[in-house]
Design a protein around this nucleic acid. Sequence first.
DNA 1: CGTCGCATTGATATCGCTCAAATCCGGTGG
DNA 2: CCACCGGATTTGAGCGATATCAATGCGACG
Lengths: 199, 199
Amino acid sequence: MSSSTQVGIPSALIASGKRLVCQPGDTIFWAGDATHSVYFVVSGAVRLVRYGRAGEEVILHEARPGAFFAEASLDSAHYHCDAMAGEASELLQFPSGVIRQLLQSDRAFAQEWVALLARQLRSARTRVERLSLKNASERVWHLLYSEGRGARCEVTVQGTLKDLARELGLTHETLYRTLATMARDGLIERQGSTLRLTA
Amino acid sequence: MSSSTQVGIPSALIASGKRLVCQPGDTIFWAGDATHSVYFVVSGAVRLVRYGRAGEEVILHEARPGAFFAEASLDSAHYHCDAMAGEASELLQFPSGVIRQLLQSDRAFAQEWVALLARQLRSARTRVERLSLKNASERVWHLLYSEGRGARCEVTVQGTLKDLARELGLTHETLYRTLATMARDGLIERQGSTLRLTA
DNA sequence: CGTCGCATTGATATCGCTCAAATCCGGTGG
DNA sequence: CCACCGGATTTGAGCGATATCAATGCGACG
């Protein structure tokens, strides 16, 4: 989702990681499972999802390569959402106990962990801000403005536009139309899956 | 916002807190200011806000008594939003340096801090989930279901319904109507500012 | 070559936003 | 005590943006 949440693996952890290979659609854990592990995405993508009353999927978070996930579950007894691989993915699995122990024993690790959580928190709040905007083009603009690289706020969409639509709290039809309109009106430029602001 | 984010003040901090008294509308810091402090709400309420392009206020977070705020700014150079007192408030101000030092030197404090950030993160993601719901009554239902106390998911609204509407990403008119409709349809009960699910 | 899912566009319905107005309520000053 | 004021609350009417339903093209992949 946001590259600002990416970190290296603290060196103290490397030894305890167990490699996990997932196919698209594989579930890594279910909501309600007793927490046992924290994960790191090496490649691919993992979605943390819950389901609305109508059964529609709500993406709480999407972990991309270089990011941990389920790190907020360290101090709860159960996972509070499902984790599902969105594509073929390679993960590292770290037992929660090891993390907890490192937090106690390794000051450098604890500091890295605090920084990691703080980045995730800022990222989540940015998303709250985006979802509070009341029309589609503002959400797209906000995405480019807050996540984009360079002077033109360039963003290369990871995954499908359908996924992006769900992340923006829109239907995919609305996102397609909004992008088309914004491009026609000269607000954004679009080259395949790369978007940027004009000027 | 969520009582799950409330904590006591770690005992290690108490000495370094500076008491701050605010009137409604007072600004504690502005977006872009160099970060210098983390705050704790003793009484009142503080809103972290940014502004949309149309100038409308977007509430990123509302800190209620017993909660820290600006804790995610510990490792950034500048605040990324405005902090404004929503009502007469009493705060404690802690220099960032003291917190950073404690994170290094005090393991118990570091652990409490990690738990605090994790709670805030879960809270923010719950709000993302809520804002991803596409209609007003589902958002209200989600609020009760995820924040409510007891079997009936009882919530006593802090502040005005207008404030709640903004937190839910709705206009106040829509919230009033939605509450009225849900009450008429027997989905919720309402007694003043207390809401609960029926059955 | 058939199938499946994404991308795209059209038509329509619905829900929430906007503008507007009336009421209520607490506080304030005469 | 009462008139007044500002903000919250509530309800109405109409509009517009987005959801929904539908159809088609297209590329990947077996």
